[in-house]
Design a protein around this nucleic acid. Sequence first.
DNA 1: TCGAAGTACGTACCAGCGGTATGTCGGATA
DNA 2: TATCCGACATACCGCTGGTACGTACTTCGA
Lengths: 227, 227
Amino acid sequence: MSKLVPKVPVPTVSGGSRRASYSASTKRALVDVAERLFAEKGYAATSLDAIVSGARVTKGALYHHFSGKQALFESVFERVEQEAAKRIQKSLRGEKDPWRKATVGLRAFLDVVQETTYRRIVIQDGPAVLGYERYREQEERSTFANIVEIVRATLDAGSWDLDEDMLQTFARIFFGAMSSAGESVATAADPEAAARRVEGAIGFLLAGVQSLVEQGVAMPSTLGDDA
Amino acid sequence: MSKLVPKVPVPTVSGGSRRASYSASTKRALVDVAERLFAEKGYAATSLDAIVSGARVTKGALYHHFSGKQALFESVFERVEQEAAKRIQKSLRGEKDPWRKATVGLRAFLDVVQETTYRRIVIQDGPAVLGYERYREQEERSTFANIVEIVRATLDAGSWDLDEDMLQTFARIFFGAMSSAGESVATAADPEAAARRVEGAIGFLLAGVQSLVEQGVAMPSTLGDDA
DNA sequence: TCGAAGTACGTACCAGCGGTATGTCGGATA
DNA sequence: TATCCGACATACCGCTGGTACGTACTTCGA
């Protein structure tokens, strides 16, 4: 049946063969539908049949473009991730003061993390499906990179000789804190109030760091230990 | 075959019928095996056949004791969770100073989170399998409760009128930070060094908060906003 | 003591899942 | 125009979680 209905290719302006255009179109359709279903029902509860039927193709097409369900998810993951990273980065433009950058970046992240698509695909299913290692690799090139940048700028304000590992650690901590906070914000009865509380809490932590910076307190290599 | 080999019941000292003893024994065997396999290969990659074969029973037995795979997981989850909570709570005994409590509690949590069983079952698979809501409900009664307690004691040091919501927010943030940090510690090339860095970083944040407390800085209701 | 009832499983089976092997058709290429 | 190959469609497979039903063993009341 679907054979009788000629598919409408995506109106690619550029050159390239007609066939390539059709191909890209169906591939994009698969990723589109998969993103929607993964976001709505989660990875495990979404069947390939549902995806290919939604994209009006068959499993043959899916397995022609992707090596399997996980590869398709990875494609969706990358897109969602890069979209989020772009939005955060955009909000950062123009801000010069590192502390302002941190504030603005936090707000942007809290916005992003409140969308079901990002939360479900990147935060919830991402680590479980890709495995933590692959997940981290992906993150390191996009949203997490933004966090690292902000943390770097912020901590550079105090002119310590802060090694890269420590910086990564700080970034990890903030990223984890914000992800967890985002989850609770998104599922809260009053998300806006919850978001304000999160901003307040993290802002307080930042103010604490800022205070130490101004006092010229050195970064500890470990926790105070009097044993 | 297994019918010919009489099962050895767990030597319950207490009363209760012989049959109940046998029953409890097989149930415990199921949870034991499930915990091992879930921790080793993850929830999705562990089949019920593998579990029942490991426990030397059949699916009939499993479905007699549990309503399904998820219910079995929940049973495992609870046990692992409570075990972890107990260990953290134990490490807290004797500590009186809230800042010391925070330090000790952090160390205990970092220890716990480095074990594959807790990490895989509670942190990785937990939210995805149970759903975030159920996951939060479970956590709220055990490990997370400890975090809340520590945060409460710490923030009470500065005598603000800190409302409960804000406290929960702080606890969520710290819990997320520590979970994420724990994951990176466990997968690091040098876990001990990574753990020290995490302790240093979070200790620094705590020091910042402490500094603000000593300065008598008030909790902000939101981030500084000059717009 | 002896049957009836219920518990604690075992057995057989099913629909749906991800994945694969193979067929087919139309556009690109020479 | 003949040929080839990419882009799918079709048919099928093994495995999975889950269910229906059968059965042996216990417990308990008469």
